[in-house]
Write a protein that binds this DNA or RNA. Structure first.
Lengths: 226, 226
DNA sequence: TTACTATTCAAGTATTCTATTGAATAGTGT
DNA sequence: ACACTATTCAATAGAATACTTGAATAGTAA
């Protein structure tokens, strides 16, 4: 192969990978992707959660779709978007990891907004795994119930954050509780920990969500609720 | 935390991750990163390999540095760039993986330019590992010798591709050879396989390079040559 | 059919990114 | 001090991206 052909090959190749990066190079699209790690969603739903206009959300989803990072399923009036496959999730985790380890700014943002978080105790995924086996804790999934239905940690019990304060009676006051939600940047679990802690429960925030649990090689459960 | 504050938090956070993606969103910068997986390099060296002007290469390196993906060390006249840490390498691998699994275009590019590749046989990293243990093959590193010096597969022998045809006498004609280079998109090993095959050697191309070897959890060797 | 809903498309403007060029900086060797 | 080299900086013009708005499409319900 000639020199100029080699260059052509490399240019064409790296251009393809750059296309993917470009699709990721926007904060709104990353937020959309992050939401999609929890399962498929409609455009409207995504637009609401991310505070984008519907047209804008749709446009960003088109961009992600052009890069093959998400796929759509149409059912009736709705378009359901989801991650194209598991490697996309791995990529987002990888990106997050680089951000957390490299950018002091990420830590600064978390520090600034989540000062509360350091007041309360958290528990790592591997510690949790052990304590669940010993039936030592109650595991609480505080995400919306449809997300729980799609996938949740085994043994977890669903009490969406919006219902938590009305359903305190369901929790035994003497058993430690671990609350979790979508992942490290989701605030539901923080809120749950604050609420429960105030009522005298011994409560921990799980460091991670279902994606991180899965990345540890542990299995997930579906529906069957409890 | 109030609603508008939550939004502020998320916007700030995802913006940080988008900064990293933006740094990756250019084919030249990806090529630079890919080269840096082999070890540190000077600006001039990188500019030559990527066919960029020095000023342009330097500018792209600044962009990567601003996103904390690479770091510099200055020694005398030269600035040596390298990957900021291992998580950056993992990110690049992740991105490549998504590209390979998702984008038919990547496969098409490889197919189009590397039609030769399918003529010859390749060997996977795990197969190689076994055959090395059995001392069944000669392992040939055909990258430039300075890259070999930084890191190479254990048991590998260095014959840079530029010297290969003059040094054929060093190779036993009856032993199978496995050639490897920087990784799947590096062409040195393809060239070596073509050359050796033509001279009657039994020769395979390793599917991957030192980064992929490392990603399999195997150790690397340094210097000591042979 | 008609009214309605969820989503997508299209166009315009403001912003950001890229490559090029030439000048500036900071080391080295004499 | 001088000439020289490797690298970075600054300014520019052209290309690509983002968000808004309003219109178009396609399915649903009556």
């Amino acid at each position: 192969m000639e020199l100029s052909q080699k260059r052509q090959f490399k240019d064409a190749l790296y251009e393809q990978f750059a296309r993917i990066s470009r699709a990721l190079a926007n904060p709104h699209r990353l937020e959309l992707l992050d939401l999609l790690t929890q399962g498929e969603r409609t455009v409207e739903d995504l637009a609401n959660e991310t505070a984008l206009s519907i047209a804008n959300a749709s446009q960003h989803l088109q961009t992600l779709r052009a890069a093959q990072l998400v796929s759509v399923r149409r059912e009736g009036l709705y378009a359901y978007y989801r991650l194209a496959n598991a490697s996309v999730q791995a990529l987002w985790l990888s990106l997050r990891q680089v951000g957390e380890s490299q950018l002091a700014d990420v830590q600064a943002v978390v520090q600034h907004f989540l000062a509360d978080r350091s007041q309360y105790q958290s528990i790592s995924i591997s510690d949790l795994y052990q304590r669940i086996e010993q039936q030592d804790v109650v595991l609480l999934d505080v995400r919306p119930s449809n997300e729980f239905a799609v996938a949740h940690l085994p043994q977890a019990r669903s009490i969406p954050i919006t219902e938590l304060s009305q359903r305190l009676a369901e929790l035994a006051p003497d058993q430690p509780i671990v609350a979790y939600c979508r992942g490290p940047y989701c605030l539901f679990a923080d809120e749950a920990v604050a609420t429960l802690s105030q009522r005298g429960f011994e409560v921990y925030r799980l460091d991670g969500g279902i994606v991180e649990w899965q990345a540890h090689g542990f299995a997930l459960a579906q529906e069957t609720a409890k």
